[in-house]
Structures are given as structure tokens and as C-alpha cells.
Design a protein around this nucleic acid. Sequence first.
DNA 1: GACAAAATTAAACGATTGTTTAAGTTAAAC
DNA 2: GTTTAACTTAAACAATCGTTTAATTTTGTC
Lengths: 216, 216
Amino acid sequence: MSCNSEEEMTELNEKQVQILLVAEKLFAEKGFDGTSIRDISREAKINIAMVSYYFGSKDKMLEALIVWRTSDMALQLENLLKMQVDPWEKMERLIDLYITRVNKNRCIYKIIHSEVLNTHRSINIQQFNEVKLRNLGMIRQIVEEGQKTGQFRNDIPVELLPTTVLGTYFHFHNTRPFYEDMLNLKSDRDFDNYVKNNLIPYIKQVIKALLKNENQ
Amino acid sequence: MSCNSEEEMTELNEKQVQILLVAEKLFAEKGFDGTSIRDISREAKINIAMVSYYFGSKDKMLEALIVWRTSDMALQLENLLKMQVDPWEKMERLIDLYITRVNKNRCIYKIIHSEVLNTHRSINIQQFNEVKLRNLGMIRQIVEEGQKTGQFRNDIPVELLPTTVLGTYFHFHNTRPFYEDMLNLKSDRDFDNYVKNNLIPYIKQVIKALLKNENQ
DNA sequence: GACAAAATTAAACGATTGTTTAAGTTAAAC
DNA sequence: GTTTAACTTAAACAATCGTTTAATTTTGTC
């Protein structure tokens, strides 16, 4: 059930990918309901009938988009877990991995959070939940490593750590206009630099402060 | 410019409030674009022409909704700032105030973050930004109090603290179906209890761990 | 070149969108 | 009671929505 490699032909041809790329961009900009199939067709330079032809419907296209973007995370996490490095280092790299990945797929995460969850939409998000649960298991392993060596505290609510990392990151982006005003970030370049030089180190600082065993 | 007490008649009659209450509920459930004026009219038991009659348009109604919900925060924060209590206590109460308020107006915050910001919508959010900036100034004062007594570290990126508090809180709600699954929260009551007994104390723990001066 | 399948198109479908209109009702002022 | 303004209504408006249809073009196979 959790394995989708063969059961429903998830392979996408290049035309489908072309459509999904445009859809992802527009959905993130204007929302799912705010984006029409005609908008997508215009930007992707295809006929409006092609969406129904390739995906069946607009809803199913969104479903295909989500599956496409969330089905290759496990590998990277397993590689991280195998590494023979200090728990602190491993936790830092975990945060880097999270942020890098989420930043790369920021559009689709925005869609998922604001359009799919909580709204009564008939879209299957089971696979998305499974990815999150597997990720959490790996984070728990890293934390336990640090606890065994006495470097980390023992009472850490692991299940809330990713929420702080991602929540801080997403909320920063969600309130981007405010931060641009206050911090005087005039270009995309300024903004990205602030994320890299201030926001990400801050998130690491937060998590490390929370993990640190004070009795040591 | 920042004072709107008289310039454009922000007072709402009870009919307008009735409409806004329904609109807020539906927007949060189905999104701004996903909610039609006919949906609102049906639920509010009014004629579909009343929205245009009272607010001018659907867009202006959203603007009125945002202004209505974000124009009474300053008073509570000023009262908190005046209190003669320990900086730690003050910071805890600040977080409580933030969360209580945001929880009360969760619907409108959801709308603002997912529908207004970042999407190219012609809605004035200046007032919303000003509220945020004023809040930040007060947080900065509390932090400086704690730094003067040596209880807080000196290198604290104050401008990112509210983002961690609100980001963690919002992201928890945004991924609610996942947490319901994992933590076996079967009812609204279970969920609210977890927020009260686990999430909010965790957020306080995170902020306090970050603020704590290790050299003391 | 002939055939079949896949891909693409323009056009139309009925439904729904936000908004406006013009007629109707209500309520208060005089 | 008359007048005036505010309020409310049903109906219609043009525009756009997601989807389907049927015809046409492209592509690959023999």
C-alpha cells in the first residue's frame, strides 16, 4: 500500500512534466482555485483539453503533482542516518537537508498546506503522511544517539521538532513582505542571503539550544 | 496614515458583522477563491446583492474583514509591558497572549497567510504590517529587560522570535491530520488538550532555551 | 503509401462566477 | 398621510469556470 512503484503507473512523460511545472508555479502564485486550466494552458502553451486528456481532471492533476514531488525523500534521509558523525553534526545536516529540500519544493508545500489539508478536498494525502512519519522515525534515531552519549537532554518532544524547523521557515516566507520592509531587503538576492546567513543559522541555534543537556 | 479611527468609517453595523462572521468561517474552510458570494449569502441568509451593497465588492469585504480582526491588539500588549514581573514570567505571558489571540482569530490569520500575502492581490495590508512592527518593538523591550539583569543572552535575533512561536503553532495546525493520526487524537477535545498540555509548553520551552544565558 | 493509434485542436457544453439593475419593501421624518 | 432615504429583493448581466465532443494532425508500424 505504501509502495507505489508499479501499481498505478506514476511515470510521467515529458508533456505531463511540462504541464505540472507550470501548474505548480501558478498554484503557488495564485492558489489552486485561483488558477484556471486556461491559465495553465496559456503559460504552458498547450490546448486546454490536454489537462483532462493527460490527468483526467484538475483535481487529479493536483494529486499527481503532490505524488511527483514527495516521493524521493527517503533515500537522502537514509544516507544521512548511516553517516558516522557526531550527533550535533548529524542534527545540523538534518536541518540543512530539510530546509534545502523544502526550499526546492516550496511551491508544492505551500499548495499542500494551504489548499489540500484542512479544506474538504477529495485528494489522497496518505502517501504524504507516510513520508512524514518515516522522516520522524529517523529523527528519533538521531536524537536517541545524542541521548545515549549524554549530549542531548532526555525529555525532548521529538514529534514537534520538525514542526518548529518547518514552521519557522514557512512562516518567515509567509510574512515575507513584512520582513522585506523591516529588514530592508530590496531584492530576491537580499532575501535569499538573509535566509542563508541569518534564518537558517537561527533555526539551528534554536534546535541546539533545545537539545542541549544542561547537566553536562 | 496609520490612524484610521475616523477617516473611512470603519464602524460596522450589525448586518455587516453578520456577513463578515459567515465570510470568515467559509473563507477559512474553503479559501477565498473557493467561497462564492452565493455561499456566503446562503449561510448568512441574505440576498447576494447585499455584499456589494455593504462592502462594494468581494475584495473589499475581505479587506474590511482583515481590518476588523487586527485592530485591537495594541492595548493588550501595552498592559503586559507595564507589569512589574520577572522577565521570564513576562516572556511566558507574552507567548500566552500571542497564542491565545492567534487561536481566537485563527480563521483570519489563515486567510491572510494563504490568500493575501504573496498572491498578487490588490488588498491593503499596511495596517497589518504596522501591528506586527509595534508588537516586535514591545518584545524587544522585554528581551532588553532580561539582558540587563543578565538572565538572557545578549545575541538574540528578536525579530525572529515571533516567527518561531507563530510558525510552530501554525504549522502544527496546518499539518493537523498528520498529528491526529500519529498521536491518536480522535476528537477536537483531544486535539485542543494536546495543544494546551504539550504544544504550548513546548513552545515556551523552545523560547526559554534560546534566551537562557549559559554563562550564568 | 496505407493504416492505426496517439496527440492536438477549436468549439461548444452547462454551470457558476462577481456584479449590476430596476422594482419592491420598510422605516423614520416631517 | 406624504415624502424621502435606506434597505432588500429577484432577475439579468457578461465573463469565466472545468469538462466534453468531434474533427484534425501527428506519429509510428507494417
